[in-house]
């Protein structure tokens, strides 16, 4: 048991269970299945972009990708435009979304590496450009996703939302790479001490490049799925994922100082974020109060998580 409690992710899961229970006391036990389903479906998008953000944050202090919302919007928009609601184009759309992710990820990395910009500024400045490209190519159109794709994105297999299954596959892949692969070791080492990692002969620059491209690919996939899930791309569809992607990483027990990743925590954080909002909803609170409480709860968790780490 003490071993379990020393895991960084356990706290986000405990918090999730508490909030889940609190919500059920209001809505009655019959709502449990529906609530869990909704949490998995909506939380899946946070997991997908949160995984990417976690890899970037693991790179060490100062590394964070602020372009995730813009990349999501851009790839969702471009993908839906390429598919133009025609049947049988789901994979074409996916390819477009991933290409958009690849291009933006490479652009971000070039700005960071070649111009030696701090990642915050590089991704911020680039995201303004991506946003403009999305506005320009979208032009207020609302193209519906192809029906088969919309059915997949909103559907379920074995009672689990399909989007959650996609997120699960990605999580397992990231976990394997981090825990078992050489790349993961390099990433963690770079995050703990980039200089030492470089001197030890690790391909630090390649690790950084791969990480920034990976986060953009995840954001591209997230935008593609989210646009299909919500019946079309909109220009502010990625907006809330700026905070969410960082929050799920921190709540999940990944160190913001870098060098330590935590995949199960991402799920705890993502489910928690959704459940908090729906709990406050079911208490019948207004939008304003709900936002205030969400903010305070996030800060509270950060303080709690930080205190634990400091004492250890």
């Amino acid at each position: 048991m003490p071993a379990l409690f020393s895991r960084a992710w356990i706290w986000s899961w405990l918090a999730t269970i508490v909030v889940f229970g609190l919500t059920l006391t209001l809505t009655g036990r019959n709502g449990a299945g529906g609530l869990a389903y909704a949490a998995l479906a909506f939380g899946a998008f946070s997991v997908i972009v949160g995984l990417g953000q976690m890899l970037v944050i693991t790179l060490g202090p100062g590394n964070v990708d602020l372009s995730i919302p813009a990349v999501m919007t851009l790839s969702g928009t471009l993908a839906l435009k390429a598919m133009d609601a025609a049947p049988g184009t789901a994979f074409l759309g996916l390819a477009v979304a991933l290409l958009a992710g690849l291009a933006t990820g490479l652009a971000n990395y070039i700005l960071i590496a070649a111009l030696r910009l701090p990642p915050i500024i590089a991704t911020l400045a680039a995201s303004l450009v991506y946003q403009s490209v999305a506005i320009w190519s979208n032009r207020g159109l609302r193209i519906k996703p192809p029906e088969a794709l919309a059915d997949f994105a909103t559907g379920r297999s074995l009672g689990v939302p399909n989007v959650a299954l996609v997120a699960l596959v990605l999580s397992v892949a990231v976990w394997i790479v981090l825990e078992r692969g050489a790349f993961g070791r390099w990433l963690l080492a770079s995050g703990q001490n980039m200089r030492a990692a470089r001197l030890a002969g690790m391909p630090v620059e390649r690790v950084r490049a791969t990480t920034y491209v990976t986060v953009a690919l995840f954001a591209g996939l997230g935008g593609y799925l989210l646009a299909s899930f919500s019946g079309g791309a909109s220009l502010d569809m990625g907006q809330e994922y700026l905070l969410t992607s960082i929050a799920v990483v921190v709540i999940g027990g990944t160190s913001i100082a870098g060098g330590h990743s935590n995949v199960p925590g991402i799920w705890g954080g993502a489910l928690f974020m959704f459940l908090v909002v729906s709990m406050l909803n079911s208490y019948g609170l207004g939008a304003g109060i709900r936002m205030v409480l969400t903010g305070l709860i996030i800060i509270g968790i950060v303080i709690a998580a930080n205190g634990r780490r400091a004492r250890r």
Partner: peptide, 21 residues
């Protein structure tokens, strides 16, 4: 010794919520 980036992101919700209120 909290990360300012996370605390201020959380506070942006608080300010935004108060403004809506």
């Amino acid at each position: 010794e909290l990360p300012a980036i996370v605390v201020t992101l959380g506070m942006s919700f608080v300010w935004g919520g108060l403004a809506l209120f």
